[in-house]
Design a protein around this nucleic acid. Structure first.
Lengths: 239, 239
DNA sequence: AAACGTTTGTGCACGTTTTCACAAAGGCGA
DNA sequence: TCGCCTTTGTGAAAACGTGCACAAACGTTT
């Protein structure tokens, strides 16, 4: 079963962009687009065309020179490489505000990550149903994880409980964790961790706002254009 | 009013870490810690000590050799540099599942980003109260933004509506946008954009899970240790 | 006042990521 | 079939971020 695939190691920066390409390609396919050039894809993804080509080249030589990429085939290849050929059920730790929101957020299940279980340490929450799933006690997490072969856990607890949640997830056999708490968690070697801190994102934006203000005051109110733009920002014509 | 501050441009990677240091320093201060070394801070932040020192050096020379950094003073300096000396009210576009969750999530207001307004295009939602704020119509966004001098907007709409939301935010005078939709938005030059796509984070983890499986199958089930760890991951002893 | 141990601040080398530039390769029309 | 136009795939350069290693600086102790 060893094809011509996955002999290369894909850079982390590329792995982070492949899901973006995947979504765009899927949308275009649904609208009837059968072929796309790196330039078109780059435009929609908000990145450089050369970057798109280099990113895609890690999957193999799947484009046709002078023509572009077959959308359907590329969708298949990216899904394959990202391991999205089947669903990955996730278990959510924490049935509070954020946990309930994540469980009820369709964007998870729709994209191949159904909520396979929710656990909480609070007996008052255990037994209630959020997002169509019954909340179980944290003590039962191993049972929940093993029953559905779950390998991805989501931490949606307050910061103070995050490390305990991580320890419980790892003990239950989870090997990837997405941490929504503001706390940095410690896990054994070999466990993958992703982190999303909503407040941090806003603080980064606040910094840029602050700079705008400083720049305007510092010099004599010169043009506000030409400021640096962070992250995945974009400018120019619209879609 | 030009002090010794902000003459340097702070690298984006550093800006993304400063909020993490800030939270840790704040917690330590609350527990009575008055002084910290770069090594201690690095341990808690899960990064290299040299990186901490280099990051902090962009703020100025605020450490004392042989001693470390004064926690309270450093908190003040980071807050100042990030523009967190005052609150930044935000306006949320989209009062659906995600919008309501964000509005109800205390982590926003607690960290200096109170919800100053919520708007939606759906008349059925307008008038209802979520997170203590009354939902107004998207058409009134300019009024909402200007009444409270809001400069940060949060997009919590479905992907299809995200570009319209961004256009409305920019037209209303917002200069920073945090986009939770899966769509890449286009904004005029000079507007800062941050993006959080929950599905993308999970897809990155799926890739690592997939690699674990491929590695185990490809060769004769060799040790699962030594796998690469993405993002802000951590290993070793706990806190 | 001098010697000592500690910790900062930073020059430098290294690795990763981005961007440029162009040869190679495919389709298409004459 | 031949030449032209388009677009890929990728070397090489530039930009960026990370980590090591060490001199300079500080408090403390003698």
């Amino acid at each position: 079963m060893a094809g011509q695939r996955s002999r290369r190691r894909i850079p982390e920066a590329t792995v982070a962009r492949l899901p973006v390409y995947l979504r765009i390609l899927g949308e275009q396919f649904d609208v009837g687009v059968g072929n796309m050039s790196s330039e078109e894809l780059a435009e929609l993804a908000g990145v450089n065309a050369a970057k798109v080509r280099k990113d895609l080249s890690y999957l193999g030589s799947y484009g046709t020179r002078g023509v572009g990429y077959d959308v359907e085939f590329l969708v298949y290849q990216i899904r394959r490489e990202l391991g999205l050929t089947h669903d990955w059920p996730v278990v959510i730790v924490g049935a509070g505000n954020l946990g309930q929101a994540l469980a009820g957020y369709n964007g998870f299940g729709d994209r191949g990550f159904p909520v396979g279980g929710i656990v909480d340490i609070d007996d008052a929450k255990v037994g209630s149903v959020v997002g169509g799933v019954r909340v179980r006690h944290l003590d039962d997490i191993t049972q929940v994880v093993q029953a559905r072969s779950i390998s991805i856990g989501v931490i949606a607890t307050p910061g103070a409980a995050a490390q305990d949640a991580a320890d419980a997830l790892v003990a239950a056999g989870v090997t990837s964790i997405l941490n929504f708490s503001p706390t940095v968690i410690t896990v054994p070697h070999g466990i993958s961790v992703g982190k999303v801190d909503l407040a941090v994102e806003l603080q980064i934006l606040a910094y840029h706002e602050q700079r705008r203000i400083n720049a305007a005051q510092g010099s004599g109110l010169q043009s506000l254009s030409g400021l640096s733009i962070p992250g995945e920002s974009r400018r120019g014509a619209s879609a």
